[in-house]
Design a protein around this nucleic acid. Structure first.
Lengths: 136, 136
DNA sequence: TCCTAGCTTGGACTTTGTCTAAGTCAACAC
DNA sequence: GTGTTGACTTAGACAAAGTCCAAGCTAGGA
């Protein structure tokens, strides 16, 4: 995760212990934590860290494009550190497990000109839903 | 919208004035109102209708498959009465306007077997993002 | 070592949604 | 038309997720 911290520092961030801890918590593959989960894990490492700081830090990482915000169910947003590799999400309707997936083709290309209503399209997010092996 | 009311009645619903008003508010094309917006418009027609009833009625319509729930931004859910025609959504990053769109091809088919992690896929939702003609 | 802009904190506040107990009423039977 | 009953509605309390603010703290440059 030091590359994330290095990138943040390169962008002029002050490298505080709070930000370091949030970045560490978000390290890994198939990580999709809610802000509250990030806070809970951050508290394990730095007991005095506040909720507001976790929200601020996550928001800043999203603004910088280092972390993706994923809204899967209209409840809490989830934060995905895998921002530098294009991917979509597959969610289990039973237990809520989330996997990163890589469909073939470009979804934007599948939208015909006469279905664009004059919009300039910037991207597309796909959420696949199904049942995972444990929930079947 | 009387067909929606007829379908609901056919499912054993008691046809109250509150439910009638919620169904009327949801009538139309490219309708994607939040629960609060539905409530505000329902109050115009039936001043004493409560928030709880609007939430209950929308939830029941979703359960029956007559209305779709759309989570576009992690904030309030939106309710889409166009449940009987498969479609996806195109959202303006500037003003939040939402259009129903119909991309070509089947997104589920674009997900290779080795990217399914043993899940049984039931469907896919695509959210296109861009800027509408007014926001460009 | 000092300074200061930027960061963090706790708590109040907002938004969105759920729950409950008590009262109301649509639809059926007669 | 009237009575009955269980489904429906209501107001308000509550909960979850997130934002905002004033006051204090501190990383990193001078």
């Amino acid at each position: 995760m030091s590359d994330l911290l290095d990138r943040l520092r390169g962008r002029g961030w002050r490298l505080t212990s709070q930000r370091r801890v949030v970045a560490e918590v978000l390290d890994g593959e198939h990580v999709h934590l809610t802000a509250d989960e990030v806070h809970a894990r951050a508290v394990d490492r730095l007991p005095e860290i506040s909720r507001a700081t976790v929200y601020n830090t996550l928001g800043e990482m999203v603004t910088l494009g280092e972390v993706l915000e994923v809204s899967t169910d209209g409840r809490a947003k989830r934060y995905d550190p895998n921002a530098h590799h294009a991917h979509q999400h597959l969610i289990c309707s039973g237990c809520g497990a989330i996997r990163d997936v890589h469909p073939q083709g470009d979804p934007v290309a599948a939208l015909p000109a006469n279905e664009r209503f004059g919009f300039v399209i910037s991207g597309a997010e796909i959420t696949y839903r199904g049942l995972c092996p444990n929930c079947r």
